[in-house]
C-alpha cells in the first residue's frame, strides 16, 4: 500500500508565509524579473511542494503541477494544431481554464513534461510519478475547429500523448498517470474512450494509471482495463463506487481516493481508516494506492497539508489494524 496524490498541489501559502510564486508572476508582468528568474522560483516552489508532501507522509509524490496555469493548457498549448482561447469554468468548480482550440492536425513536437519530471525526481526524497491530463478529457474541454468529429480530435490527442508518454517512459518513472475526469460526466462514451485509450497506451509496457474523479466512473473502469491500464483510480468517497468495482473485472492495481479534497472539513481518522480497509479488502493491500479523491489545489495550502496529514493518520490506523 502506498500513499500518493492525484496531481496538483496549492501553489502559494497564506500569510505569514510569503506568496513567492504569485509575487514572482506579478514582478514578471511589471518587467522587474526575467522569465529565467521566474523559472527559478517555480523550481524552488516545486522543491517546497515535494517536501511538504513527503513531510505529510505521502510516499509517491508529484511535482504539484506548479508550472501549470490549468489542467488543459500546459500540455495542449505545447502541441501543434492547438491555440489557447478564453477562460471557461472547470466542471462544477469555481475555477477556470483557458479553452484550447484545435485549429489544425494535432501534433506532438517535443517533450513537454520531461524536464519537470526529471527535476522533481532529482530533488525529491521519495519517488515521483508524472501526471498528464488524458486525451478524452482534453478532447472534451477543447473547441474543435479542424476535425470532422469529436472522435478524430480525441484520437489525434491520444496519438500526441502517446508520443509524450513514450518520451517519459525513457526516464523510467514508477508509473505514468493520466487524469480523465471528463469521462465521469459522459458515461455513454465508455466504449469510445476504450479505443482512445488503446491508442494512448500503444507500445507502452510499464505501469500505466488512469484516474477518474468528479463522479462515479461507471463503465469507464472496465473500458480502462480493456484498453490496458494497469492501475485505476476512483473516488471512493462517492457511495457505491467500490461496490461497482467489486462487481466488475478486478483492476490489477487500485488507487482509492478516500478523502474529499473539495472540503476543508477534516475527516474522522476512523472513517478514513474504514475507506482504506474497504479498498484493501477489494484490491489487496499490495495492489493498493491511497490518495485524496482529486488534486489538492481546490484547498488553501495549509488545509491541503492538514488534510494530507489526516489521510496518512487514517492509513496508519488501517495499517496498524492489518498487522
Amino acid at each position: 500500500m502506498l500513499v500518493t496524490v492525484v496531481g496538483n498541489y496549492p501553489k502559494i501559502p497564506n500569510l505569514p508565509r510569503p506568496a513567492r510564486l504569485r509575487n514572482a508572476f506579478a514582478r514578471l508582468d511589471r518587467g522587474q524579473i526575467t522569465p529565467e528568474e521566474l523559472a527559478k522560483v517555480e523550481d524552488e516552489v516545486t522543491i517546497e511542494v515535494l517536501k511538504e508532501q513527503a513531510d505529510a507522509g505521502v510516499e509517491l509524490l508529484t511535482d504539484g503541477q506548479v508550472r501549470w496555469f490549468d489542467e488543459q493548457t500546459y500540455i495542449a498549448g505545447k502541441l501543434g494544431g492547438v491555440e489557447i482561447n478564453g477562460l471557461i469554468r472547470f466542471f462544477d468548480t469555481n475555477t477556470y481554464y483557458r479553452e484550447p482550440i484545435i485549429n489544425g492536425p494535432v501534433a506532438w513536437r517535443e517533450p513537454i513534461l520531461i524536464r519537470d519530471y526529471a527535476f522533481a525526481r532529482d530533488n525529491a526524497s521519495r519517488p515521483v510519478k508524472p501526471v498528464l491530463t488524458g486525451p478524452y478529457t482534453l478532447a472534451r474541454l477543447c473547441r474543435n475547429d479542424h476535425y470532422s468529429s469529436f472522435e478524430d480530435v480525441a484520437f489525434g490527442l491520444a496519438e500526441a500523448l502517446n508520443a509524450e508518454a513514450k518520451a517519459l517512459a525513457a526516464e523510467d518513472p514508477p508509473l505514468i498517470q493520466f487524469n480523465e475526469p471528463a469521462i465521469t460526466r459522459h458515461p455513454e462514451d465508455a466504449r469510445l474512450a476504450e479505443s482512445i485509450w488503446r491508442r494512448l497506451l500503444s507500445g507502452l509496457s510499464g505501469e500505466t494509471a488512469v484516474s477518474f474523479y468528479f463522479g462515479p466512473p461507471g463503465d469507464a473502469v472496465a473500458a480502462a482495463l480493456n484498453a490496458g491500464f494497469t492501475t485505476v483510480g476512483v473516488d471512493t468517497t462517492i457511495p457505491g463506487v467500490l461496490d461497482a468495482i467489486a462487481a466488475g473485472p478486478k483492476p490489477p492495481k487500485l488507487a482509492a481516493g478516500i478523502m474529499d479534497s473539495r472540503t476543508t472539513r477534516l475527516e474522522d481518522v476512523d472513517v478514513l481508516a474504514g475507506h482504506v480497509e474497504a479498498a484493501a479488502a477489494l484490491a489487496g493491500s499490495d495492489n493498493l494506492y491511497v490518495n485524496p479523491n482529486i488534486g489538492l489545489e481546490f484547498l488553501p495550502r495549509e488545509q491541503a497539508q492538514a488534510k494530507l496529514v489526516r489521510l496518512v493518520e487514517g492509513v496508519n490506523k488501517a495499517r496498524g489494524g492489518a498487522k
Binding site: P10, I12, A19, L21, R22, N94, T95, E297, P300, R301
Partner: peptide, 17 residues
Amino acid sequence: IGGLVRSYGNRYYHKPV
C-alpha cells in the same frame, strides 16, 4: 474569509468559510 485558492493561472481569491 478563508485562505487563498487559485481560480486560474496567477489569480487567487480568499474562499469564504
